[in-house]
Design a protein around this nucleic acid. Sequence first.
DNA 1: ATACCGATTATGTATATACATATTGAAACG
DNA 2: CGTTTCAATATGTATATACATAATCGGTAT
Lengths: 248, 248
Amino acid sequence: MSLVETDDVEGGENVSLHQRILSDIREKILSGAWAPGHRIPFEHELTTQYNCSRMTVNKALSQLAKAGLIERRRRSGSFVRQPQSQAAVLELHDIRIEVEALGLPYRYERLGRLKRRSSAEDRALLGLATPGPVLALEGLHFAGERPFALEQRLINLSAVAEAGEEEFLEIAPGPWLIGRVPWSEAEHRIRAMAADENTADALDIDASAPCLVVERRTWSAEHPVTHVRFIYPAESHTLVARFTPSQG
Amino acid sequence: MSLVETDDVEGGENVSLHQRILSDIREKILSGAWAPGHRIPFEHELTTQYNCSRMTVNKALSQLAKAGLIERRRRSGSFVRQPQSQAAVLELHDIRIEVEALGLPYRYERLGRLKRRSSAEDRALLGLATPGPVLALEGLHFAGERPFALEQRLINLSAVAEAGEEEFLEIAPGPWLIGRVPWSEAEHRIRAMAADENTADALDIDASAPCLVVERRTWSAEHPVTHVRFIYPAESHTLVARFTPSQG
DNA sequence: ATACCGATTATGTATATACATATTGAAACG
DNA sequence: CGTTTCAATATGTATATACATAATCGGTAT
């Protein structure tokens, strides 16, 4: 995998059939038109739909399978996978799983919730060009009795209107969003900082203690969805990322 | 891409020809037997070598090309690429490039160099099972006059013997290694910490100021190559990683 | 020498075909 | 009624073939 990479499929005309099938299906999945679990047309159906041979369709589907977008089952067909290839990335930040892996009880608690018209700062964080409604959330993830991470989140309500109806009192917005919004791209920023007063207070650590900050922006089909900032006390947290340059 | 993933090719017997060709060639490249620039056999040669059709060979080579291990040129053949697809990952930590991107002059300065038999701690960091010679290096990366990052590195001399002859007085070991050792896997650990005395002194910051620590372990064909720890002052550095869930 | 042009060559893409393999669903059987 | 068997089905892998495309090499003409 590579951390910085551009999509090599352009929407042009002179693309190969192979590429066209690939991007068509990928678009359907990422847009949500084909939800997880949905059965993709059989190879022979796509064969007639695209008026091409089975080999061509097969190559495209095999590639999608290798990329983890779909799962192929003999005799049954091909199915859109749960967004879990993505979870492999996101599990870094599915805090419930991290906490439970430590054998500690997990709990989420909302600290604040505010629906507002996006400020200039909100738009900068989300990458929005024009003003619109956003939902600002602050919450605390607990491992047992101890605060484990502080979460500060913005949700673009123009992209995810239903989020405006949610209270997020005890369910964390992260899992809620993952279940509803298929994402196509995410950007992480990782840095260290000294805890400010608000943070130190929430996490119950000393002021100016070192913290690890992970910020993530997520897009779905070009539209900004959410910006989230996780703040971890330094002692409690190490990110681990394992890379293989290429996967056969 | 996924952050945590296992190689799906086992060394077993009942693998498809496709997989066998793939892993054969990949092994040749990663082991260094075929250096960057080396022309790999033409499709029709592999066809006779593996006694299979051109399509099968072509599929395997196309996949290697997409993975970035080789480059294919019409009429000329297929060539092992410089390890640069990997640079897309590593550029996160090619500090020279980061510094020069800021428009500042870059300089590396060695602080210490020690050849020794690996201690238990060395082996833990490198992931080595048995004792052997290692090279321990400490150095400082400068952006202009200011220290930019402190580097603490171990090199497994059993894997990279030539490194023992290098002084690394003004050239950083990172680029030196990348040019010589093709790597097959890397693991990053990222965390925040308060500067200890040695670090604060080297980086010219306050003791207990927050720092971002990036540790990387690298393997080449199952053999540990190097362990490196970069320590950045919090103000100077943010890691950015951009993910796309799958690449067509 | 230099510029142009065409033949050659290796890869790029697609087809039709064949058989293997895993899984399902239903029929046959105890 | 439960179990076994078998045929149908969708995918997995491989082949032989065909033509397209890009790059290179040589020869020819300027």
